[in-house]
């Protein structure tokens, strides 16, 4: 009963908070785009819908026209197509990476907190060592070792993306274990299993939820950064980060019009910013609702 009430209140607040509503609308918008992608843009290569069709081989980008709604970028790749199908790439990267980092991070943190002692010490020192490297740098190094490509980028981000969850769930469980209601549950003879399932986890899982929501955005951001550096997907694959790296050579425009190639940066840039912003807004509102003290990250 108690859990249900919390959930209902949370959902109601999410739907009345203007910040989170903007975020939710954006996420739904991106989901719709991802779902209807084959109908609003026609794949040119059968069996390879993620490869962006190109109209010619000229390097110079071409301005938006009826044939190319957002114009073409370097190498005549259609920007509109790349953004629409890139939405699917973004969801795939964000959801899969966050799912697997949760799968690694949460059990490790829970084990550390439950067993304590040497096991706790070992797990947390390993966590510290993994956290020594900036996420982007660590992922970059591992991609160089595993080889270029979107799948290896995702694997690298999983290997170096779990530590936040481990630290958070460990801290939360340790705090919750000290609460009077846990002692009370022990006193009335509740089993360890029941206490963990009914009292510890429900209270520890919400902050993890907030973190995971926000991480979907930041994972997409890091993947885009790696693609921007040229370590991501194959050339011509629908990937927002790669589209921005195409734009790099064209930001200065022509002699007469310095903003001549604005569309090569603005459209893919807007797609990334809005996607990440959406998850951050929802996560942010989520946190404010769940934590009345409105603390920053722990």
């Amino acid at each position: 009963m108690r859990g249900h009430r919390i959930k209902n209140r949370t959902i109601r607040k999410l739907l009345t908070n203007p910040i989170s509503v903007v975020g939710l609308v954006l996420i739904i918008f991106f989901i719709v785009i991802a779902v209807v992608a084959p109908w609003i843009t026609k794949p040119e290569y059968p069996g390879q819908p993620y490869m962006i069709p190109r109209s010619g081989y000229s390097a110079t980008p071409e301005a938006p026209s009826p044939g190319h709604l957002f114009g073409t970028t370097e190498g005549q790749y259609d920007i509109y197509y790349g953004i629409v199908w890139g939405t699917r790439t973004a969801f795939r990267v964000g959801l899969i990476v966050v799912f697997f980092t949760l799968l690694i991070g949460v059990p490790l943190g829970a084990i550390a907190a439950f067993y304590g002692g040497a096991i706790d010490e070992i797990i947390m020192r390993i966590t510290d060592i993994f956290m020594t490297f900036p996420f982007l740098v660590a992922a970059m190094v591992l991609v160089v070792i595993l080889g270029r490509g979107l799948n290896n980028v995702m694997i690298a981000m999983m290997v170096f993306g779990w530590m936040g969850y481990t630290r958070m769930i460990r801290g939360d469980i340790l705090t919750i274990k000290e609460n009077d209601y846990i002692a009370a549950a022990h006193a009335i003879g509740a089993s360890d299993f029941r206490i963990i399932l009914r009292h510890v986890l429900p209270n520890a899982i919400y902050p993890i939820f907030v973190m995971a929501t926000m991480n979907i955005g930041s994972m997409v951001l890091t993947a885009a950064a790696l693609s921007f550096l040229g370590l991501g997907s194959a050339v011509g694959y629908a990937d927002w980060g790669q589209m921005i790296s195409f734009a790099r050579n064209w930001i200065l425009g022509t002699q007469t019009n310095p903003l001549a190639y604005w569309y090569t940066v603005i459209y893919p840039g807007a797609a990334i910013v809005l996607f990440v912003l959406a998850w951050n807004l929802v996560g942010d509102a989520f946190r404010d609702i769940l934590d009345p003290r409105m603390r920053g990250s722990r």
Partner: peptide, 17 residues
């Protein structure tokens, strides 16, 4: 909030532009 969502490489290119 925009600071969290604006990638370095987009911000940098826009500023250069």
């Amino acid at each position: 909030i925009t600071g969290w969502s604006l990638p370095i490489f987009v911000l940098g290119l826009l500023l250069l532009m």
